[in-house]
């Protein structure tokens, strides 16, 4: 534990005679706010740095190896990467993952925006309850939230048995479950609560006098929204987009439960490489390629939107 911000030494320390380099070191330490801050921060930062950097470094290293039975040939080779880019099935799954994830991100942001807008601008009493209600489902079991859609969309599920019970259809609709649309619906439901927070925060920050100024200067509600509110809330929208796009590309539980053969995503293949296919180096290469492409897309997106916003302003 380090000294407090003021750097005031306690009486005990002031009375203790100290000379030489130790006292100078002590004085330097207490004089330097940054040093004290780093000391306090170091356990957290070191744990996080180590437990992220070490695994990723090893994964990069392993992606150049070859799997032989349960052992690895550690001679460096590029053939894992060669395979990722030359096999059409990998490219197909990658493109599908990106499309599913992009649709889900788009849907999530579109449906979350009006909700965040409502709470930011039109709720004045019990705002806290609304915020908690909007975000609560995000914290509850991920597996169960996905599984519930299997129950709803399934062959004997809620929708089918409900429609049959009402006499609207004779036999269950089979197109509900096990396709990419089911994956998009499920992911949208699972992530909507997460998208709301950044959008809400950016809307809440908008200075209300700007809106009044726009109204006074003759803007109608629509023009005011498009020219003031929307541009000012874009940082929140961008944050929400990235926060949803990146993790959903790598989701494998949703496709495994509701995706069926046409809804398989790249992450399912990565998982299989560490499971039944038993080719860890191949899986590492796939994971790295996926992360690289997703990172590139996310950065291009952030850069493009910033560029666009600057040009509008």
């Amino acid at each position: 534990m380090s000294e407090s911000v003021t750097g005031a030494a306690s009486p005990a320390e002031q009375n203790r005679p100290e000379t030489g380099w130790r006292s100078r070191l002590r004085a330097f330490y207490h004089g330097s706010e940054a040093l004290q801050g780093y000391t306090l921060l170091s356990p957290t930062l070191l744990v996080m740095l180590f437990s992220m950097c070490a695994p990723f470094a090893l994964m990069v290293l392993m992606s150049f190896w070859t799997q032989i039975g349960y052992e690895f040939d550690t001679a460096a080779t590029l053939k894992n990467y060669d395979k990722v880019f030359s096999e059409p099935v990998y490219t197909k799954l990658l493109v599908r993952s990106l499309l599913i994830s992009a649709s889900c991100t788009f849907a999530t942001v579109i449906i979350s925006y009006p909700m965040a807008y409502y709470v930011a601008f039109h709720v004045h009493r019990r705002k806290m309850i609304w915020i908690i209600l909007m975000t609560l489902p995000f914290w509850t079991s991920y597996l169960l939230r996905i599984f519930t859609w299997k129950v709803i969309l399934g062959f004997n599920g809620v929708i089918n048995s409900g429609l049959i019970g009402m006499g609207l259809i004779d036999k269950p609709l089979e197109f509900l479950l096990y396709n990419p649309t089911a994956v998009v619906i499920t992911l949208t439901h699972a992530w909507a609560a997460f998208a709301i927070l950044p959008i809400y925060v950016s809307l809440e920050k908008i200075d209300r006098s700007l809106l009044e100024a726009a109204t006074d200067l003759g803007d109608g509600p629509m023009a005011r929204f498009l020219r003031v509110t929307l541009p000012l809330s874009l940082p929140g929208v961008i944050a929400a987009t990235v926060l949803i796009f990146v993790p959903t590309v790598g989701d494998y539980v949703t496709p495994a439960l509701v995706g069926g053969p046409d809804g398989v995503m790249l992450a399912n293949l990565i998982q299989a490489h560490f499971g039944i296919i038993n080719n860890w180096p191949g899986g590492s290469a796939l994971a790295i390629v996926m992360m690289g492409i997703v990172g590139l897309i996310a950065m291009t997106y952030i850069w493009l939107t910033r560029f666009a916003v600057r040009n509008i302003e």
């Binding site: 992220m52 070490a54 392993m62 989701d251 990565i270 992360m291």
Partner: peptide, 15 residues
């Protein structure tokens, strides 16, 4: 927060 779970999972598994 922004690293897909599967990537964290396999990287830690390798380590």
């Amino acid at each position: 927060l922004v690293i897909p779970g599967i990537i964290l999972g396999v990287a830690l598994l390798i380590l």
